[in-house]
Write a protein that binds this DNA or RNA. Sequence first.
DNA 1: TACGCCATTATGGTATACCAATCAAGAGAG
DNA 2: CTCTCTTGATTGGTATACCATAATGGCGTA
Lengths: 243, 243
Amino acid sequence: MPPENDPETGPETGTDSTANPAQGADVYTRLRAAILTLDLLPGERLSERALEGMLGASRTPIREAVLRLETEGLIQRKGRVMRVTSLELAEILEAFEYREHIEAAVAQLACQHATKADITRLQKILDAGRQGADAAAWFEIGSDFHILLAELSRNRFLVRAVTDILTRIERARWIMCSLPSARDEAHDEHSQILRLIELNRPEQAAEALKEHGRGLRDILAESLSQRSRAGLRARGVDIIDRA
Amino acid sequence: MPPENDPETGPETGTDSTANPAQGADVYTRLRAAILTLDLLPGERLSERALEGMLGASRTPIREAVLRLETEGLIQRKGRVMRVTSLELAEILEAFEYREHIEAAVAQLACQHATKADITRLQKILDAGRQGADAAAWFEIGSDFHILLAELSRNRFLVRAVTDILTRIERARWIMCSLPSARDEAHDEHSQILRLIELNRPEQAAEALKEHGRGLRDILAESLSQRSRAGLRARGVDIIDRA
DNA sequence: TACGCCATTATGGTATACCAATCAAGAGAG
DNA sequence: CTCTCTTGATTGGTATACCATAATGGCGTA
């Protein structure tokens, strides 16, 4: 590996002289984080060689990470060029549509399978995240809740589906993370959903989840609307209307 | 690359002396096919070096293919060892449960978006596959129908979900491909589903799809039941009850 | 000035050497 | 005969060299 002189990404690459095992997963994690936090901008071009320097690893683990992120939809290849997937309004709306259906299924199955212990455990997590949490930790908890909820369905495919779709939406959520007012509201809605599942009301739980998702979608659509584009573009973020 | 002498997989590897570009995708396709057709048995251990010889490519494209198949759930890694994912009855049943919900969503959205032209096009494909098709081509058409149907939802995530879940189930379907009687029945059910979408009856279309899936699931569960295990084990196929 | 052609370069695809860790088999002791 | 420790082989992880080609920028021409 060539000597790493530029401070580039941060405190990385301070490894030893030989191969650095298990660094492959780390490369994946860091690259993924860089994309999700918009450290790498949507639409930005990537090259394996550049990432090699940026992440302090050779092309092999880079390639693995890129391949994974490609299947997650965070990176796209068009011929030989490789870019961070652009934010496309239409796709995000499709994602929310999909999510509605998925979480309706989750609600129904969770009602069938969730135990009292499951509910209280989830409620505890919810309450724990209520006080003193920064924006980043806040929607970390939001994601966790939806994934944990999916696990109550006892269906691994639904868990995967929820996990995947949250990944897809995460960058958009990050953009509008400057709205702390929504936090308490989210907590209440999450609790209400949990209660409906506890009461074995699948229809109502599904409806509450759908409504919850729609609320987020609307906030998000507003944040990405024409009127708000200017501020985003100043931060380097560009949203595509039709691809 | 070492000279390839054994007829091993088939007519492959007859390339030139230098690197063989775009062979990476081919390696993926062939390895995937080998797994789905049970040429590589569920639970069978794999090694990158062995695959290197079997597929006539170096470890780099092998690694890429393996990584892809891992995300598709066809290969699993437990620590350092890598195996073809075992057939697990519980997982297959979960897959069908998931599929029911996914296709209900497909039905609903397809009713909203499908045009007359879409319906007739799909019906044509269905009819074309009716006569003279061997078992392999038959459930190729079955898969295609469900994917094309998903595309009528105009939601790329649903398309992906259907594609994924069909992949998961495909090996199980392959096992019970010896039941040609189901072919006409499937054609009729598919046509009926299409008709209900054309008539804009989302509830009934969803129910028909669910019923269609349940029928297949039951046949499949029967094929994988204790009573039928002996014949399968003779072919080298082993099914796990609880993992 | 604008458009298209060509040379250079950058990039991804491939093959391969090296390493550490794991697994397995075999030898030796009890 | 069994259990354990050692040792060697196998394997995945990593780094890197080579190659064909697509991308890019410059140049020449209309």
